[in-house]
Design a protein around this nucleic acid. Structure first.
Lengths: 341, 341
DNA sequence: AAATAAGGTGTTAGCGATAACATTGACAAA
DNA sequence: TTTGTCAATGTTATCGCTAACACCTTATTT
């Protein structure tokens, strides 16, 4: 055995020292029955004295599952600097602590060409959180593969496919309603709307909610009041001038994301206009930056940490309960009153 | 074999189909020699057709190393919402892509009581990035354990112990110099300094640089011009009033972190004072928020992404080259001129 | 033409753990 | 005493993969 110069303490070492079979040690380590309390004590003591650490990899191999949570996130090169995702990850991390699992990250970019299932199999991950869905490709097959192989997962964002899957999202309709109600209560009647990424799940949903509700609240219905962004700061900066140069300027702007709202604010301020006196601005998400901008951004809070945590919870429940029906959790948003409205 | 109902494609399946031994398939999969090009082609084709994915866990077990990078981060409960760390993680993530490794996260909180080495052994991680060091406990032993067991690692922040280890940090002295030079060039002579966490590596270093250089640039030397923060927003908010109520008010504030600078700015603005007209503010770090606050924060940029990437690079080099001397990389900071000065 | 080298490929033994199954032994029932 | 039962352990076979080594071909050398 010269191949491995250094070997760490294994159950065999413990077994030898305790004068028992290694399988007995395994039973003790897994808190299973059929071991007398006295022997159990003895083995635990020896294991502790020797500084035994279970080898999770060996465990994973035999059990065909690693006790990790795999998070698959989008191809976006600057994923990690988007605080929106970060706050979700914090929630996932909390859940991992709770369930005593390690956390692994996969960017689809990195694993180019590999499907969710392939990633999971490669690393024996039995629990996946899929952070967004690229709706330009069909993922029914991916889902089927995961299902067929006993891999439990949740989507983070609403899943738009036909399948019943675990997914956690925010109640966009309610969020938009709260936002518009607040704007209405402030006396606004003419609202500019900056829509979000049409290829996402949230973008169209918020747009539709806006369309439906703006009528209800008696806002002006001109088409030119809606411009198309993609959730990014830059798109807010790009689209805002279109709204500012309208013959009849809106008195308030509702952006489908904080980033777009912040981009829009920058344009508004650069025109020498005052927020909220000349134009009020309302965002959506409550990312970290919302509290830091000047004036601070009134926005709709998504419970992002909670969403991350719940996504893991759902997947765990699916795993533990055969009969658990995959479900979509739409969490309630909340109005964050700040200075921009 | 009823224990495992479903089995995914293994090298044995491929070997059987190709009519060779599974070890030959292994050679092909690992791009090793001693396989004729023709056979290699054939095996690769079959593997591809069957949708073969190597089982990284089995690979890890036999080779005693998983091709992952383990990132150990501090106990801080809100770690993930601190953009400072996030930008570093983005760099680490980039490096992982480069070296084709997966990324695992461990919060020390989660793995309470486990040492760096124990974590690494548990998951067979042979490459670790240690995100901060709690200098209140001795980690010489941890380092020795890692070394003894062939685990390569880098610290992210300057390592203050005696051992020679890989570590990546920013050149704090140079950063402070650039900051103070700029303030001096703006005509400031009376500068308030908000110091950072004294238990970190960066805090004291920046304080000392400030002490040494403020004299050189001819700034006022009153002790009361320095207050003690801990890098957080709250500490900036807490300490700023002490500087504002000095008999002779400073004309500029230099905070050892952006978060403290932003906290200080909030206090200054709440007093009806104008930034930078009444008081200029200079930060340190260039976290995401610096660009969003109003007025935007002039600060010293730490190349955070680059630091994360370099930390992995160093560890990899240690691994690949027996003779590579562990080293400390002090990256050059950069002045980000914005509106607050 | 025989000996040697060198390239390909198969055989086999683990890595550290779990789990099915076999075995042992103590104690109760017959 | 004999048999049966069941709890407590031991034996052994994998998990999917890598690597040492044996073996069998072919080229190359003399």
């Amino acid at each position: 055995m010269k191949r491995f110069e250094k070997t760490s303490i294994t159950i065999k070492d413990i077994a030898k020292k305790a004068g028992v079979a290694h399988s007995t040690v395994s039973l003790v380590m897994n808190d299973r029955e059929h071991v007398s309390p006295k022997l159990r004590e003895k083995i635990l003591k020896i294991a502790n004295d020797m500084g035994y650490m279970p080898n999770m990899v060996a465990r994973s191999l035999i059990s065909k599952k690693s006790s990790t949570v795999g998070v698959v996130f989008p191809e976006n090169p600057h994923f990690f600097t988007i605080t929106y995702f970060l706050m979700i990850i914090e929630g996932i991390q909390n859940a991992c602590k709770k369930y005593n699992r390690a956390l692994m990250f996969f960017s689809l970019d990195q694993t180019k060409g590999e499907s969710y299932y392939q990633i999971s199999r490669k690393w024996l991950i039995d629990l996946m959180i899929i952070m967004n869905v690229d709706y330009t490709r069909d993922i029914s097959k991916d889902i089927q593969d995961l299902r067929d192989n006993g891999i439990y997962f949740s989507f983070l964002t609403k899943y738009l496919g036909k399948e019943k899957v675990n997914s956690v999202c925010v109640d966009n309709f309610e969020g938009v309603r709260i936002a518009l109600e607040y704007l209405a209560s402030q006396g606004h009647k003419r609202i500019g709307f900056i829509a979000g990424n049409p290829n996402s799940a949230d973008g169209p949903e918020r747009s539709e909610a806006y369309k439906a509700l703006s009528r209800k609240y008696g806002f002006d219905q001109d088409d030119e009041l809606t411009v198309q962004g993609d959730f990014t700061f830059e798109s807010g900066e790009r689209e805002m001038p279109k709204l500012l140069t309208l013959k009849k300027r809106p008195t308030a702007i509702f952006a489908a994301s904080d980033y777009m709202a912040i981009g829009a604010m920058r344009v508004i301020k650069s025109q020498g206009l005052s927020i909220p006196k000349d134009i009020a601005v309302m965002g959506f998400d409550n990312t970290l930056e919302a509290a830091y901008v000047e004036p601070s951004l009134t926005t709709i809070r998504q419970p992002l940490q909670e969403m991350g945590e719940k996504a893991v919870d759902l997947a765990i429940r699916s795993m533990n309960d055969e009969n658990f029906e995959p479900q979509t959790l739409a969490l309630k948003p909340e109005l964050m009153k700040r200075q921009s409205c």
